[in-house]
C-alpha cells in the first residue's frame, strides 16, 4: 500500500501540474500590463490630460447628476452620500462587490441602480444610457490612481470561479476562449492589433472606434462578437461574474477611469 502510494503520488502530481498548466496559463502578477502601455503616445496623452480626454465631459455630466433630485423620494445622491470625493473614494476599485440581500456580486452599474430604485424610488437607468455611463464615470474617477481591490472571500470566491470558467471556456463559431487571446497570445498581433492582456482598468472608457464612452460589458460584447459567440444580455450574471474575475485578475493594478482606448 505504502509503496503504491509512493509511486502514485509523484505521477499524480505531474499529471495535476500538466492539467493545471493546460487549463490555465495565468500571467504572473509582476508581468501584467494595462492596455494603456500598448497605446501610441498621442492616445496616452489624450487619456492623461483631462482637458483633452473626451470622457471628461461625461464625468462633468455625472457630477451634475450626483446633485440632481430624482424619483418619488426627491433625493439626490449627494443628499445621502454628500461629497463624492470623500464618500466614493476607492468604491469603484472594489466593485463588483457582494450584496448580502441579492446573495451575489453586483457591478457598480447595478449598485448605482439599486440606489436609484430603492433610495430614490426612481426607475433604473438603462445599461449604456448616457446617464448611467456618466454616473459610473464620475464614481470611477474618484478611484483613479488607486489599486484595484475587489474582495476575494467565502462570499465572492464561487463567483470569481464562475467568471474564470467563462474566461477559459471555448465559445462561438471560432471556438476561442478569452484566455486564448488575452493570456496565451497577449502581445502577439491579431491582424494589425497588438493583443492586450485584457485588464478592465479603465472602464467606463472612451473608445475612439466607438466615438463614445462605453462600459466594460460593452467591451466584452465586442470580444464575444469577434468570437462569433452569443453575447449575454446586459446585466446578465455571467457578465458580472466575468467582470469580477477580470477585476480580481487585475488586483493591485491602477484604476485609470475614465481611460481612452483606440
Amino acid at each position: 500500500m505504502e509503496k503504491r502510494l509512493r509511486l502514485v503520488a509523484p505521477a499524480l502530481a505531474i499529471v495535476l501540474a500538466a492539467i493545471a498548466s493546460l487549463a490555465f496559463a495565468e500571467i504572473p502578477l509582476s508581468q501584467r500590463r494595462s492596455g494603456y502601455e500598448q497605446m501610441s503616445r498621442e492616445v496616452k496623452a489624450m487619456q492623461d490630460d483631462d482637458t483633452s480626454n473626451p470622457a471628461s465631459l461625461s464625468v462633468l455630466d455625472g457630477e451634475a447628476l450626483w446633485t440632481r433630485r430624482e424619483g418619488s423620494a426627491q433625493k439626490s445622491c449627494a443628499d445621502c452620500h454628500h461629497d463624492a470625493e470623500t464618500s466614493m473614494r476607492g468604491v469603484s476599485a472594489r466593485y463588483p462587490a457582494f450584496d448580502a440581500a441579492k446573495r451575489r456580486p453586483l457591478d457598480i452599474e447595478q449598485r448605482i441602480n439599486l440606489c436609484r430604485t430603492e433610495k430614490q424610488q426612481a426607475t433604473p437607468l438603462p445599461f449604456e444610457s448616457r446617464d448611467l455611463l456618466a454616473l459610473t464615470a464620475y464614481l470611477g474617477k474618484q478611484s483613479r490612481g488607486m489599486p484595484i481591490a475587489v474582495i476575494s472571500d467565502d462570499d465572492t470566491k464561487p463567483f470569481i470561479e464562475a467568471g474564470r470558467q467563462i474566461y477559459a471556456r471555448r465559445q462561438g463559431q471560432l471556438n476561442l476562449s478569452c484566455q486564448n487571446c488575452h493570456d496565451d497570445n497577449a502581445g502577439q498581433k491579431l491582424a494589425g492589433v497588438e493583443l492586450p492582456q485584457g485588464h478592465p482598468t479603465g472602464y467606463p472608457l472612451y473608445r475612439l472606434e466607438w466615438q463614445s464612452l462605453g462600459s466594460l460589458q460593452r467591451r466584452l460584447r465586442n470580444c464575444l462578437f469577434g468570437m462569433r459567440a452569443e453575447p449575454y444580455a446586459y446585466g446578465a450574471d455571467e457578465y458580472v461574474d466575468l467582470e469580477l474575475f477580470l477585476m480580481w485578475r487585475a488586483r493591485g493594478m491602477t484604476v485609470e477611469t475614465p481611460a481612452v482606448r483606440p
Binding site: R228, E230, P231
Partner: peptide
Amino acid sequence: ETIMPPYYRVDGLTRVA
C-alpha cells in the same frame, strides 16, 4: 489545443451566435 478555428465543423461548439 489549437486555436485555429474548425472551418468545417458544427458539432461540439458552445454558445455560437
